[in-house]
Nucleic acid binder design. Sequence first.
DNA 1: TGTATTTTCTTTGTCGACAACAAAAATATT
DNA 2: AATATTTTTGTTGTCGACAAAGAAAATACA
Lengths: 239, 239
Amino acid sequence: MVTKGPEPETVVSKPRRGQGASTVLEILRSEILELKLAPGAPIDESDLSQRFGMSRTPIREALIKLANDGLVVTLPNRSTIVAPLDLLELPSFYDALTLMYRVTTRLAARHRTAENVVVIRQLQDRYAEAVAAKDVAEMIEVNRHFHSQIARAGRNKYYSDLFERLLDEGRRLLRFYYSSFNDELPKAFLDEHEQMIRAIEVGDVDAADRISKQHADQIVRQIQSYIVDDRRLNADIQL
Amino acid sequence: MVTKGPEPETVVSKPRRGQGASTVLEILRSEILELKLAPGAPIDESDLSQRFGMSRTPIREALIKLANDGLVVTLPNRSTIVAPLDLLELPSFYDALTLMYRVTTRLAARHRTAENVVVIRQLQDRYAEAVAAKDVAEMIEVNRHFHSQIARAGRNKYYSDLFERLLDEGRRLLRFYYSSFNDELPKAFLDEHEQMIRAIEVGDVDAADRISKQHADQIVRQIQSYIVDDRRLNADIQL
DNA sequence: TGTATTTTCTTTGTCGACAACAAAAATATT
DNA sequence: AATATTTTTGTTGTCGACAAAGAAAATACA
């Protein structure tokens, strides 16, 4: 409690009323996703309270929301911990991720506006820059926004909410295993992204479906190169 | 604040430490789903605090969780309100509901244990009793548990979480329009449920898929007919 | 009378303190 | 010495109170 180890120490100036919880939420979320906070690590409310210079109440609110997103686990009367990476749930994760890739991209091909396409293209450009600079962190980050924007273009909040949750969890997994991130895969992504954008732009639902499935398979295979356990049972579902 | 109108007044004896928020959460959830709290109605923290005989802190925690489930909307610095029923989002709802019916039933057909089937059959029996007794409230309630249990038998928490959220929202819709609940549909459900159980029991994924899609279409059509009957808002709704 | 400004009032957001619970440490018991 | 029991310690869950932000009411002004 008193000893101050080598921990992440992002602190901000005291935010406005009503912004306390959300700023803490965002900072903690990114620290969890970037593994600055290790899976399973305990989270002390008093520590955070001191660190962010506010009382425990807004800290608590942020933790409740993180628990709802599955990023932390609350142990009653005991400390909250960063959600462990449960390898047994990976097959479920693969299954849902693949399905969400498909339905969100399909819907985007149907409902996208011209403005949507512009925003998505900008993110694709940023991704290309990250690949050129070999900036893995930036690649993971931009990749998430890229697909998140596609999902929003599909205009189905149920899907985009779940998809963003899955993308976050995936981001954590990629971080965990990103040592295997070689130079080839990011370029393959770049090409697939380009095809994806074109299908969305033209409104070709079938093409969007095909490419997004291929893309999901690619990602899943990458993660699986460590954990060989493919049980994506809905991968071939006809939509 | 002082006047006590004809409001729902479920009060419980003071719960144990750590149970405060969750009991409030469950009571509020059911009151929202059963429309005892009208969509758009403001929720006053002090009122609830008095009603449940606890401080505002655990009340607040419950409200945060309800907001995460989309059942209430928090207006910053102003009162929280019960989430409105947004008719413009119905197409998204139909789409997601149908897909979740399908994937959860498919997965259940693969992963169900003997024990799962027993529990599901018990719920089917309860549903049959409710139909015989023409107890609409019980039918809606049991129907939700029936499909929720099927989803859990599929063992994919991403799907079952989303599905339960959708079922809850659907429950609220059915409540809202259930004046036109006639005698025929519930029996059709009974039959479809029976087929569904059999497909799950035998492990026939294709049959499970077919029946669940049929079932979902049935429900969507039912909701749509209510809305067309009650209001003429279908001009903007994609049918 | 109708609009602009000030004041009051209600409700939320935040705070510091205390009580309850569980784990860890210390003591007793065999 | 090993286990059972008690004490201590640390952390969470809950509380009552206060401050900030809007909304409503009251007042001033045209």
